Amino acid sequence: MNAPAVGLAPQRVLIAMPGCEAAAMRLAIPLSAELGHAAVTHFPDGESYVRLYTPVHGAEVAIVCTLDHPDQKCLPLLWLAIAAREGGARRVGLIAPYLAYMRQDAVFHPGEVRAAEHFAALLNGAFDWLVTVDPHLHRIAHLSDVYRMPTAAVEAAPAIAAWIQAHVRAPFLIGPDEESRQWVAQVADICEAPWAALAKTRHSAWHVEVADAPAIPPRCIPVLVDDIVSTGRTMLAAAESLRRAGHPQPVCIGVHALFAADAYSQLCAASADVVTCDTIPHPSNRIALTKPLVDAITRMFDLPLRASQQLLAG
């Protein structure tokens, strides 16, 4: 592939990491991008092997890799980014609908590390820009606090609100803990629905307690909204609080469907419905985020090369 002619936009190439092929296909057509082909495998001794088959010289390249189970994905992802760069890509971006390690945002005990910062350092060295969805920003206020590259954080709230308006009559939105307040408040504002946030005490990843359920007007349907559903224990505790108060089973909505161990089956048994966005492939995916992702990725592709270099230098 030759470098793009003066005045012509460079070719766009999307490369999917294993498991992200469907997401890359959803994005490719509206982005007018070619789907690249790469091999990502392992040698018998466990070392990662990648080979980029699609020529990328002069192209704008983006790798699609949602970062659940990040320890399995990170090294081959970095090798693939290096392969694209060594192949002459104009820029190499990362489309990571779920961004890992953002919850490890502080040191609580001696000997721990602020993993969010160090994970960002790994990605900073390999990519020119990053697009993600609702990163868990709590003690880290902005992605730019740890990521040196240009970043875009797509908000799932409008799509979640649209789903609620289409499927839930008279919703009463509930954030199962204080950290969920930012998401539930935004969704409730779009829906023009009442809302509340509960207080949580976490004893361990698998043992949490939440405050008593709020007073919910008659005929309202409780809707639990959170960004990440991993063990599901926070939502399960909130659902149990609602049950004790005599309220109907809630609809449970999460942005990122991690669902460790038996979390999904337990949550299905304790709720009227379990719904997630399509940032991590899962049977609960019912809220599509393709359009806002395309908008954010387009802005990154169109960012002038000099401007992105200045942002990186700054």
Rank of each mutant, 00 (worst) to 15 (best):
97 P>L: 04
206 W>A: 09
71 D>Q: 13
25 M>Q: 11
213 A>E: 10
143 L>H: 05
216 I>Q: 07
256 H>A: 07
80 L>R: 02
221 I>H: 14
268 C>E: 15
306 R>N: 09
5 A>T: 08
69 H>V: 14
32 S>K: 05
208 V>T: 10
7 G>A: 13
32 S>I: 04
89 A>D: 03
5 A>F: 10
58 G>F: 02
189 D>G: 10
304 P>Y: 10
11 Q>M: 14
35 L>S: 05
82 I>V: 08
109 H>I: 15
96 A>I: 01
138 H>W: 04
226 D>E: 15
199 A>F: 07
306 R>I: 12
165 Q>E: 12
76 P>W: 00
222 P>C: 11
257 A>I: 06
20 C>T: 02
49 Y>V: 10
179 E>N: 10
74 C>K: 09
214 P>A: 11
82 I>Y: 02
306 R>H: 09
18 P>T: 10
171 P>L: 12
78 L>T: 04
156 A>V: 05
167 H>A: 07
38 A>F: 08
115 A>M: 08
157 A>L: 09
57 H>N: 13
64 V>N: 02
168 V>C: 07
113 V>S: 15
232 G>P: 04
23 A>T: 13
122 L>H: 06
193 A>L: 02
103 R>S: 12
242 L>P: 03
308 S>Y: 01
16 A>K: 03
249 Q>L: 11
22 A>I: 07
135 P>F: 04
190 I>S: 05
232 G>I: 13
304 P>R: 06
15 I>L: 14
238 A>W: 01
119 F>G: 00
215 A>S: 14
173 L>A: 11
41 T>F: 02
98 Y>G: 03
309 Q>T: 05
21 E>V: 10
245 A>Q: 10
286 R>W: 01
149 M>L: 15
35 L>H: 01
280 I>K: 01
63 I>A: 08
254 G>L: 03
67 L>Y: 01
32 S>C: 13
199 A>M: 07
128 D>C: 01
178 E>W: 00
212 D>S: 15
262 D>N: 15
148 R>M: 09
2 N>P: 15
103 R>P: 02
107 V>E: 07
272 A>D: 11
16 A>H: 05
81 A>P: 07
25 M>D: 05
56 V>C: 15
40 V>Y: 00
227 D>A: 12
101 Y>P: 04
36 G>E: 08
187 V>F: 03
227 D>V: 11
253 I>Q: 00
276 T>Q: 02
64 V>P: 01
140 I>P: 02
111 G>S: 08
257 A>S: 10
206 W>I: 08
230 S>G: 11
12 R>K: 14
201 T>C: 01
290 T>P: 09
207 H>P: 00
158 P>W: 03
24 A>N: 02
200 K>E: 04
215 A>V: 15
161 A>E: 06
28 A>M: 14
290 T>Y: 03
206 W>E: 14
17 M>R: 06
161 A>I: 10
201 T>Y: 00
180 S>I: 12
256 H>R: 01
301 F>Y: 15
168 V>R: 00
266 Q>K: 14
244 R>G: 00
208 V>A: 13
144 S>H: 14
40 V>R: 01
242 L>T: 06
297 I>N: 00
34 E>K: 09
165 Q>P: 00
174 I>M: 03
94 L>I: 01
270 A>C: 13
101 Y>V: 08
182 Q>Y: 00
266 Q>N: 15
13 V>W: 04
234 T>V: 07
39 A>W: 00
